[in-house]
Amino acid sequence: MRWEAFLDHVRERGEYTTVQEAERAARIVLALLGAHLVGEVRAELAARLPETFALVLLNPLRATEPLPPERFLRATAAWIEGATEQTAAWDVGAVLSVTADAAGEELSHRILLQLPPGYDLLFGCPEHT
């Protein structure tokens, strides 16, 4: 997916007023996600993202343990100035649903297998419970 298209989708789903807001959310969420994915799954997802976001995913923040969805939202809120857990949930949902679209159903399923239970809702894929 191209950079502009990815950000346009994030901006639309997140109802951001600027591309910069969408980009900020995408960088933070993908950096946190990258810390939770390993191996071939992370590499395949990176290959389906715009290059800049692929690099963010491949050079993630370091996670000492897999974060349950609630803690992932709190971590996102901590990285976004002025965010609350509710606004972070909005940011995460916008970015991860576009990421799931870029990944496709099969890769999205394999991504969810690497994450703690409950991430399916963050990706907008509740059928993968």
Rank of each mutant, 00 (worst) to 15 (best):
residue 23 E to S: 12
residue 102 A to I: 01
residue 18 T to P: 10
residue 28 I to F: 02
residue 41 V to P: 00
residue 46 A to S: 04
residue 56 V to Y: 10
residue 4 E to M: 04
residue 77 A to S: 10
residue 105 E to M: 02
residue 98 V to P: 12
residue 49 L to N: 06
residue 109 H to W: 13
residue 122 L to W: 12
residue 84 T to Q: 01
residue 30 L to W: 02
residue 58 L to G: 07
residue 79 W to R: 11
residue 65 E to F: 14
residue 63 A to D: 08
residue 61 L to H: 08
residue 10 V to G: 15
residue 21 E to V: 00
residue 37 L to Y: 03
residue 51 E to D: 11
residue 57 L to N: 14
residue 114 Q to L: 04
residue 93 G to D: 10
residue 94 A to P: 04
residue 12 E to C: 08
residue 42 R to N: 04
residue 48 R to A: 07
residue 102 A to L: 09
residue 61 L to Y: 07
residue 91 D to L: 09
residue 88 A to R: 02
residue 34 G to V: 01
residue 73 L to G: 01
residue 97 S to D: 12
residue 106 E to S: 00
residue 40 E to G: 02
residue 109 H to D: 02
residue 73 L to V: 12
residue 12 E to F: 13
residue 123 F to L: 05
residue 125 C to F: 08
residue 78 A to P: 00
residue 67 L to H: 05
residue 20 Q to I: 10
residue 40 E to D: 15
residue 61 L to Q: 06
residue 124 G to H: 11
residue 113 L to F: 10
residue 38 V to I: 04
residue 52 T to Y: 11
residue 55 L to H: 15
residue 23 E to F: 03
residue 81 E to R: 04
residue 80 I to Q: 12
residue 94 A to E: 09
residue 30 L to T: 10
residue 122 L to N: 06
residue 55 L to R: 15
residue 34 G to F: 03
residue 110 R to D: 06
residue 127 E to P: 00
residue 105 E to H: 02
residue 18 T to M: 04
residue 6 F to L: 11
residue 41 V to E: 01
residue 80 I to W: 00
